[in-house]
Design a protein around this nucleic acid. Structure first.
Lengths: 338, 338
DNA sequence: TTGTATGCGTTATCAC
DNA sequence: GTGATAACGCATACAA
């Protein structure tokens, strides 16, 4: 009932009648130890329920902690969930534990999280940079050997490894796919803020595909939204234009949800859609949703392996790894304009 | 370039020409300090980029660490992602950081995670128990005041707070809804293993609804699957029966994805469906998916607030909080049998 | 207002 | 084989 202290090495030592060091030796299989003491120590450990205090151990050993700090925009976004799982799967065998937090794409929250992680002496830092965040404060940490990886977007003010999707090429392919099916008025529903790297890159891919097709740029076909509800409204606005688009391109998975929901609500089946990033049930929609799929698993795994290589002493210069996207043709993107 | 040591209190003290304790005082706004030294210390801290080592601080202070350990089956499952976000949102203002891991519903992995978290002296432990896991090893920890919360399912071998959805009542309502629309042959597609608490409870709700309606139990209408692909196969099997079901009940979100995907693939629109747990794009399906929605946000928030109350000294006896589910009528559950 | 001694729980060093 | 002692980075207690 009482809030008793957790047992320490000294408690175990006292129980057995040996020194703390001996207990430490047995547990870490460090120096030699007689079978007898060995038995007794292990018995006492089990009896008292002793677990070595990892924080105390780490402070003594001095090295970085066996944790990996991960900052993502939103724990509930399935895309980042899949990325996080891939990272965890990759680092688990190394015994690293995940320290996670959502930045909500707010630079201040991102900074608060990275500061906390650094104060905990994480051995690796993986960050999905927020718009407006500056990462020069991480320079000294990188200089002392801390692997820092930017994920999904490049960071600002720090030269380090980045892992990104082929945003521009992927969006280009998706829009070119719509063009190939006869569309010339193609709406773009992107997330906010407009300065967001992925948004900018994907919009650039959208533009280049239209340019190649000789379609003049029409600013009124570009819409923005913060969330699914916003994307629904943006879709309604685009389709309400005097000269409305015959096709829509979704800038990310959340925008895709909004577009699809709005089209379903208004029973519009005549609008072609291609989405950047896959969503569940895409095949079950009518028409099924054509997407430019990102490889969340590869993004996470690559980020983790790159970081582990750095941890193992890889001192080569910072590099950006681009994970390819893949156009998955399912129906919605192959509809022709009326 | 070199792997320099991170600066310590002593480094800052040396830089300024004061004692370590003085630096500590300034940073923690502990005792008094002259404006002069204050300035100098802060300047040196900024110059050296000093960040107090949270682990060292914690080991000295003795209390639990400012982390909260969270074990969930799968980081990539949107349901648990939403739960995790709610927990994070609730504990953030208390300055707690999330230590997370996926158990993959494997008792050994769960144990490995909880052991790691305990070795890190987390101040709160929230666990989604795996099937077959025994939690009696957490007893001494709970006795020393560590708040332990079971989430989504009750744990075994430890009496402590649990937060669960109204699984049985929710499933009952969903199936009764199908019965009310004329169905008497209703298939159940549940996850595995069959011993899983949520699965058992939901199946019990299914059975009681059928019993109330006077429908005899038919074991051949119960199917199982591990994942979405399995659920698709299970759906195909059920619909291939000599006397097939006219309606299907999905035991969780993943099973729902499988059922919907399979029905879409085979263009079956005549089968009524109600799913336990909501999925994105449910409204955009044809017919839109009727669900028994869980309140992931409330589950996470309640788990967190319960844990925080314990941390603040709440010594009342362990209680189970049931978070209500809500039937959302959208179309698929209102179809009548042929 | 500031410094010294001491201790948190662990491991490294070196002696026995 | 085993143990005493110091040390990790910080905070508490007390003295100056």
């Amino acid at each position: 009932m009482a809030a008793n202290r957790r047992p320490t090495l000294a408690d175990v030592a006292r129980e057995v009648g040996v020194s703390a060091k001996t207990v430490s030796r047995v547990l870490n299989e460090d120096g030699p130890a007689s079978a007898q003491t060995r038995e007794q120590v292990l018995a006492a450990v089990a009896k008292l329920g002793f677990q070595p205090n990892l924080m105390a151990r780490n402070i003594r050993v001095g090295g970085p902690d066996t944790t990996i700090g991960l900052v993502i925009p939103d724990l509930a976004n399935p895309f980042f969930g899949a990325v996080a799982r891939a990272i965890e799967d990759t680092v688990r065998e190394r015994g690293l534990t995940l320290l996670m937090g959502s930045s909500a794409d707010d630079p201040d929250r991102e900074r608060a999280l990275t500061d906390k992680f650094l104060a905990r002496r994480v051995s690796i830092l993986i960050v999905v940079p927020s718009v407006g965040a500056d990462h020069s404060h991480l320079k000294p940490h990188r200089a002392t050997g801390l692997p820092v990886i930017f994920l999904d977007r490049p960071g600002v003010g720090l030269s380090t490894d980045s892992i990104v999707s082929s945003n521009r090429a992927g969006a280009h392919d998706g829009v070119a796919h719509l063009v190939a099916h006869g569309h010339r008025r193609i709406g773009f529903v992107g997330d906010l803020p407009t300065r967001l790297y992925t948004r900018r890159e994907r919009l650039a891919g959208y533009r280049s595909a239209l340019q190649e097709a000789g379609v003049p740029h029409d600013r009124s076909l570009i819409a923005d939204a913060h969330d699914q509800q916003g994307a629904e409204a943006a879709t309604a606005r685009l389709l309400g234009l005097a000269d409305p688009p015959t096709a829509l391109f979704a800038g990310n998975n959340i925008m895709a949800l909004g577009i699809v929901a709005e089209l379903a609500r208004t029973k519009r089946k005549d609008v072609a859609v291609v989405a950047f990033d896959d969503v569940s049930l895409a095949e079950a929609l009518e028409p099924a949703l054509t997407v430019v799929a990102q490889d969340a698993e590869a993004l996470g795994r690559t980020a983790a392996t790159t970081a582990l290589a750095r941890l193992d002493g890889d001192r080569s210069r910072a590099r950006t790894t681009t994970v390819p996207t893949r156009l998955i043709v399912r129906g919605s993107g192959e509809q022709r304009p009326a």
